[in-house]
Simulated assay, not measured.
Amino acid sequence: MIDSEVFEFVERCNKHTATGPLLGDLLETVKSLGFEHLILSGVPLGGQKLAPMVELNGWPPGWFERYVEAEHAAVDGVCIYSAKTLKPFLWADVPAKWTETEGSRRVAGEASEFGICSGFAVPMLSVHHWQSVLSFASSQKTCKLSQRQQVQLVTMAVYAGMSIQALTDTDGEADGILSDREKEVLLWAAAGKTSSETSQILGLTERTVKWHATRAREAFGVATTTQAVIEAVRRRLIHP
Rank of each mutant, 00 (worst) to 15 (best):
S4C: 02
V6E: 04
V10F: 05
E11Y: 14
R12H: 08
N14T: 15
H16V: 11
G20K: 14
L23P: 07
G24F: 03
E28R: 15
K31P: 00
S32Y: 00
L38C: 11
L38M: 11
L38H: 05
I39W: 11
V43N: 04
G46K: 05
Q48P: 04
L50Q: 09
A51D: 15
M53S: 10
L56A: 04
P61Q: 09
P61E: 12
R66S: 11
R66D: 11
R66V: 11
V68M: 13
V68R: 08
V78H: 06
C79F: 08
I80F: 04
I80H: 04
L86C: 06
F89V: 04
F89K: 03
W91R: 07
P95D: 02
E100V: 00
V107C: 03
E110L: 13
S112T: 14
S112N: 02
E113V: 12
V122H: 08
M124H: 08
S126M: 05
H128C: 01
H129Y: 13
Q131L: 06
Q140Y: 05
K141Q: 10
C143K: 03
C143D: 00
K144L: 13
L145K: 06
L153M: 06
Y159C: 13
E173I: 10
A174R: 13
L178P: 06
L178D: 06
D180C: 01
V185C: 03
V185I: 15
L187I: 12
A190F: 09
A191P: 02
A191S: 13
G192A: 05
S195Y: 09
Q200V: 14
T205H: 07
R207Y: 03
R207A: 13
T208V: 07
T214V: 09
E218G: 01
A219H: 01
V222F: 06
T225M: 04
Q227K: 07
A228W: 03
V229G: 04
I230W: 07
R236H: 14
H239D: 13
